[in-house]
Measured scan of single mutants.
Amino acid sequence: MAAGGDHGSPDSYRSPLASRYASPEMCFVFSDRYKFRTWRQLWLWLAEAEQTLGLPITDEQIQEMKSNLENIDFKMAAEEEKRLRHDVMAHVHTFGHCCPKAAGIIHLGATSCYVGDNTDLIILRNALDLLLPKLARVISRLADFAKERASLPTLGFTHFQPAQLTTVGKRCCLWIQDLCMDLQNLKRVRDDLRFRGVKGTTGTQASFLQLFEGDDHKVEQLDKMVTEKAGFKRAFIITGQTYTRKVDIEVLSVLASLGASVHKICTDIRLLANLKEMEEPFEKQQIGSSAMPYKRNPMRSERCCSLARHLMTLVMDPLQTASVQWFERTLDDSANRRICLAEAFLTADTILNTLQNISEGLVVYPKVIERRIRQELPFMATENIIMAMVKAGGSRQDCHEKIRVLSQQAASVVKQEGGDNDLIERIQVDAYFSPIHSQLDHLLDPSSFTGRASQQVQRFLEEEVYPLLKPYESVMKVKAELCL
Rank of each mutant, 00 (worst) to 15 (best):
W175E: 05
L211K: 01
Y13D: 02
E463M: 06
E279T: 07
A150T: 06
E213Q: 15
L468K: 07
E64C: 12
E462P: 05
A235S: 11
I427L: 14
V405I: 14
F36S: 13
P100N: 11
G200K: 01
R171K: 05
V465S: 03
Q320V: 10
F160N: 07
N353M: 14
V92N: 07
L319Q: 00
I369C: 14
W43E: 06
W43K: 00
A49C: 09
K82G: 13
S9R: 12
M278L: 13
L130P: 00
L307D: 00
S395H: 09
I436M: 07
K199L: 00
V29R: 05
W39P: 00
T244F: 05
V315S: 10
I249G: 05
E370M: 15
T94V: 14
I339F: 15
L209A: 10
C483R: 14
P467T: 11
F95V: 07
A127I: 01
A230P: 01
H107N: 06
Q397T: 06
E370V: 07
D117L: 00
Y13P: 14
E70I: 11
Q41K: 11
T167H: 07
S474P: 15
Q408G: 14
Y34D: 05
H86D: 05
F28P: 01
T347Q: 07
C99V: 12
V390K: 01
Y294G: 03
G200I: 00
T111Q: 01
C113Y: 00
G109F: 03
S474L: 14
E220V: 09
E425R: 12
P446A: 07
Q184A: 13
T450L: 05
M476T: 15
T202K: 04
A381G: 07
M181G: 08
A342M: 05
A22I: 11
M380D: 00
V254D: 08
G8A: 15
Q177I: 13
F74G: 13
D87C: 00
V88A: 09
R338T: 00
C304Y: 02
S289A: 03
D333W: 04
D178G: 03
Q325N: 15
A235D: 07
C340M: 13
K75P: 06
S438N: 09
G231W: 04
S359N: 10
M299Q: 14
Y114W: 13
K479R: 14
Q286A: 02
L211W: 01
K101Q: 14
W39V: 09
K218I: 08
T158Q: 00
H263D: 01
I176K: 04
R270W: 03
K224S: 13
M26P: 05
L131I: 10
G96H: 00
T227I: 05
Q241G: 03
K229P: 06
T239W: 01
S19P: 06
I122E: 00
T350K: 04
L174S: 11
N384M: 12
L179C: 10
D32R: 12
R374T: 05
L255D: 05
A410V: 02
M76V: 15
A411S: 06
K233H: 08
R37K: 13
D349F: 03
T154G: 03
N353D: 12
Q325C: 15
K470N: 13
I403S: 03
S438W: 06
V92L: 06
A230V: 05
I386F: 04
E277G: 03
T158R: 00
I57E: 00
R137S: 15
V254G: 11
W43G: 01
K199Y: 02
E425L: 10
S434H: 11
C180D: 10
A90H: 03
P162V: 05
S290W: 03
I57W: 03
G394T: 05
D445V: 10
S67A: 11
T382E: 08
E80R: 10
Y114N: 03
K218A: 12
D317A: 07
R426M: 08
L155V: 01
R452G: 07
V478C: 15
M312F: 07
I106H: 00
T239D: 00
Y466G: 14
T313A: 15
R374N: 12
T38R: 03
S257E: 09
L461D: 02
L444V: 06
F433Q: 03
H310R: 13
E463L: 10
S289K: 07
A110K: 02
F208A: 00
V168K: 01
G200A: 12
F157E: 03
K229N: 04
I238N: 02
V324H: 09
A150Q: 10
R337W: 03
Q409V: 09
L53F: 05
F30C: 08
K147V: 09
V368A: 04
E228L: 12
F449S: 04
H97Q: 12
D332S: 05
L423S: 03
S448D: 14
P471H: 15
A143W: 05
Q375G: 06
L17M: 15
T330L: 03
L252H: 11
E70C: 13
P133W: 14
G54N: 09
Y114G: 01
T38H: 06
F232M: 14
G8M: 15
E228Q: 15
Y34P: 00
P24N: 15
P298Q: 02
A291W: 02
H217F: 11
S306L: 02
L121V: 14
A127T: 03
L84C: 05
Q61T: 09
Q320I: 12
R404V: 07
D32W: 07
Q455E: 13
I436F: 04
T330H: 04
I72L: 10
I238F: 00
L211P: 06
A110V: 04
W43P: 02
I139C: 08
S323Q: 07
T202L: 07
D11L: 13
V254K: 09
L352Q: 05
E148T: 09
A110M: 02
Q428A: 08
T321N: 09
C173W: 00
E481R: 15
S301D: 06
A90R: 02
F449C: 05
P467S: 09
Q458A: 12
E64W: 07
K224W: 14
L132I: 14
V168N: 05
L258F: 15
I403K: 06
